[in-house]
């Protein structure tokens, strides 16, 4: 009898969380999961590397900066060039902040070892995302994207934050999704591609013309 009660206490929450995960994935895959916020939208921007940084900054500069604030830029710890670009793109220092996390995968790193470093990066990301409590996350490329979005999704499953993920595939990808895109297509709320033919390889992808 005691075993049953214990089992109930352990498994019931697990079942609830699992149901929540399935429910959220269903929601993400089947609807335009919108969001209505009380005040401004707390925004995280995942900065990738090199060209991806330039691309994302060019796209988000068109956003209403009054609505999407405060903004937190998350970048990889060994990324030096992006910081300058961010400061150039942002005008008033009061509305945005920078946070660095370990890189999940370096160029030319093997897939196997990148699993380890992704896990390490994910652990570092948990307090960053939890403390900021974002409403919207924008990301477009390698580097910091996957850990941040995974953490955000798990925290959303646990009802700790309420946020939506917007993934913008780089203009470089004409026919196939990037690895980041292939992973994120299952739990990013909005997937945007910049070439119409990419919609063939990802049915959820939205095409609004070229953005950058």
């Amino acid at each position: 009898m005691g075993v049953w009660i214990l089992g109930w206490f352990v498994f019931a929450p697990l079942v609830v969380i699992l149901l929540r995960v399935f429910y959220l994935i269903f929601l993400v895959l089947s609807t335009d999961s919108g969001l209505e916020s009380e005040s401004t939208l707390r925004t995280i921007l995942c900065i990738g590397s090199g060209g991806h940084t330039t691309e994302l900054l060019r796209i988000v500069r068109n956003l209403d900066h009054q609505k999407y604030q405060p903004r937190l830029y998350i970048l990889a710890d060994n990324d030096v060039s992006s910081e300058v670009k961010i400061h150039k793109a942002e005008l008033s220092p009061a509305k945005y902040a920078l946070e660095r996390i370990p890189r999940s995968r370096n160029v030319k790193q093997s897939y196997l070892s990148s699993i380890g470093s992704t896990l390490y990066a994910t652990l570092h990301t948990i307090p960053v995302v939890y403390n900021f409590k974002p409403n919207v996350i924008f990301c477009n490329g390698p580097g910091t994207c996957v850990p941040v979005c995974v953490v955000a999704f798990i925290l959303r499953c646990l009802f700790l934050i309420d946020c939506r993920i917007v993934f913008i595939e780089s203009i470089c990808r004409v026919r196939t999704l990037s690895l980041t895109g292939k992973i994120l297509q299952y739990f990013a709320d909005v997937i945007v591609v910049q070439w119409p033919q990419l919609r063939d390889s990802c049915y959820r992808a939205k095409y609004f013309g070229r953005l950058t």
Binding site: D32, S33, G34, L35, E36, S37, E38, S39, T40, L41, I59, N62, L63, D64, K67, N135, V136, R164, V166, V190, V192, K206, F208, G209, R210, L211, T212
Partner: peptide
């Protein structure tokens, strides 16, 4: 090369993410 036009994308985002 035509100029990029993000207005549709921004409009979509503004429809999906609203501030009360």
């Amino acid at each position: 090369f035509p100029k990029p036009d993000p207005t549709l994308f921004i409009k979509y985002l503004d429809d999906v993410f609203r501030v009360k």
